[in-house]
């Protein structure tokens, strides 16, 4: 299933950047930071460069180019309208699933382009193979006001906030830390062989976590990363969506 972000995340929008106020109740300390998100396409490129597998994808400026660009991708496809200012696509209805034919793809991408708003700025189409896997994890980075950058692994993908079966570590982490994060998830049965799918490749999940940690170490401007969902495909974790947030106003 192709997941998309949704749910209770409600950043305060000021212009086209998120103003993030993180209050630390324990020490009554507060911090404000101006940040901006990268488009899904740029975010995918960033996490791919860190060695994290993402579902096969291409980008295209318009519907006609989309059909041509997507010719090599396995189907069905998902089409999304993405841009630096569009962090939460499914809330805006900017995602089209299960596109098998060129006709369906063209129709969907035309609709997406038409749905763009002036305030979205530069947009493009992102076309990706819908990978198959019943299980979803979530992984990411987030900056904690007390402890600094943290690495997270959780169960549930789009349901992660409701399930709240998560494990955190402070970046940087070692492979041993990463394996312990996997081991401490409550929902271990989901990680074994499941409904005809093989067990989750723990080394591959650990590699994603270490990859995130390396990403944070290599780019101090990173504030957060979401790999949500991380779909388990034949046991391997594949990010089908990515969102990178960096400090500063949008360039």
């Amino acid at each position: 299933m192709e997941g998309e972000r949704s749910g209770p995340v409600q950043p305060v929008l000021i212009g086209d950047t998120h103003r993030l106020v993180a209050a630390d109740v324990g020490v009554a300390r507060s911090r404000t930071m101006t940040t901006h998100t990268l488009s899904e396409a740029t975010s995918r490129a960033v996490v791919s460069a860190a060695g994290i597998e993402v579902s096969p994808y291409v980008t295209a400026p318009d519907a006609a180019a989309a059909v041509e660009a997507a010719a090599e991708l396995d189907r069905p496809l998902v089409a999304k309208l993405c841009g630096d200012s569009i962090a939460h696509k499914s809330e805006r209805g900017l995602v089209r699933l299960d596109l098998a034919s060129d006709e369906a793809l063209e129709r969907a991408t035309n609709e997406l382009v038409a749905a763009a708003r002036p305030e979205d700025g530069e947009v493009e189409l992102l076309l990706s193979t819908m990978v198959a896997g019943r299980r979803e994890l979530i992984a990411g980075l987030t900056h904690d006001p007390q402890f600094g950058m943290t690495v997270m692994l959780g169960v549930g993908g789009v349901l992660a906030e409701a399930i709240a079966d998560v494990s955190f570590r402070l970046a940087p982490i070692t492979a041993v830390d990463a394996h312990e994060m996997i081991d401490e998830l409550d929902t271990q049965r989901l990680l074994g062989p499941f409904r005809g799918e093989p067990a989750v490749d723990r080394r591959a999940v650990a590699a994603v976590l270490v990859g995130l940690s390396d990403l944070a170490a290599g780019d101090p401007a990173i504030v957060s990363v979401d790999l949500n969902p991380l779909v388990i495909v034949d046991g391997r974790p594949v990010a089908v969506d990515a969102l990178v947030e960096r400090t500063g106003a949008r360039p």
Partner: peptide, 28 residues
Amino acid sequence: STGGQRAAASHTGALATDDAVFDGMCRQ
């Protein structure tokens, strides 16, 4: 039990309760 979910632009941030992060820090 205090210091629950924070306002955050990311899902990861929304899951980062003080207790979850403190717990992970202890284990690490």
